[in-house]
């Protein structure tokens, strides 16, 4: 899966915007959006928010978790815990990325938020890597990881599945090798 496909899925998440125009409800298959009243906050999918913002038609209200305090707390919790902690949004990195790209002026202290999110991401990826390593070394056949987000899984997906494939082959050599080769020669 490509990261841009993950981003596509993330664009279905809802964010709050304050439009500066008035328009009736838009009826879409995925649900109704609006009605838009200038100056009144409304919830729209991320893709629409990005589009309206690019056309200067709205102001984005940053999600509750996109503040320095919440993210600093989150980062500390992530550092203290041995396991993955639950993220405020399953698409936290994608939403931050998109909003910080187009709506920097609406988000207070955008630079620090970008750094914090990146720190949290790095912490989680490092954690993910060491759990993958423990998993491979322990020769278990399954493991459970809570609170991993799609983008995080996606970066190790191909590597992990190939690695497990390889290990499975080596293991099945070891377990069934002798018997299977005998039966072939009969």
């Amino acid at each position: 899966m490509d990261p841009s496909e993950v981003e596509f899925l993330a664009e279905k998440e809802h964010v709050k915007i304050v439009p500066n125009f008035t328009q009736d409800t838009i009826y879409l298959i995925s649900g109704d959006i609006g009605p838009f009243v200038a100056g009144l906050p409304v919830c729209v999918p991320l893709w629409l928010a990005v589009n309206l913002k690019q056309r200067q038609k709205c102001r984005v209200v940053p999600p509750d978790w996109m503040t320095l305090e919440v993210l600093q707390e989150k980062k500390q919790a992530e550092m203290d815990s041995r396991f993955f902690t639950e993220m405020p949004s399953p698409f936290y990195i994608e939403i931050t990325q998109l909003l910080l790209q187009c709506a920097t002026d609406d988000i207070p202290r955008a630079d620090e938020i970008r750094t914090l999110i990146k720190d949290i991401w790095d912490l989680r990826i490092a954690k993910l890597r060491s759990s993958v390593d423990v998993f491979i070394k322990s020769e278990e056949s399954h493991a459970k990881l809570n609170f991993l987000t799609l983008m995080e899984i996606n970066t190790v997906r191909e590597f992990l599945t190939k690695g497990l494939d390889h290990m499975h082959q080596l293991k099945s050599n070891l377990n069934g090798g002798g018997m299977a080769s005998n039966s072939q020669f009969l």
Binding site: N154, T155, V156, E158, F159
Partner: peptide, 14 residues
């Protein structure tokens, strides 16, 4: 190579 592909794809997205 598979690992690098994953990293590069993410980097180019980022």
């Amino acid at each position: 190579a598979a690992g690098q592909r994953g990293l590069l794809e993410f980097q180019s997205w980022e």
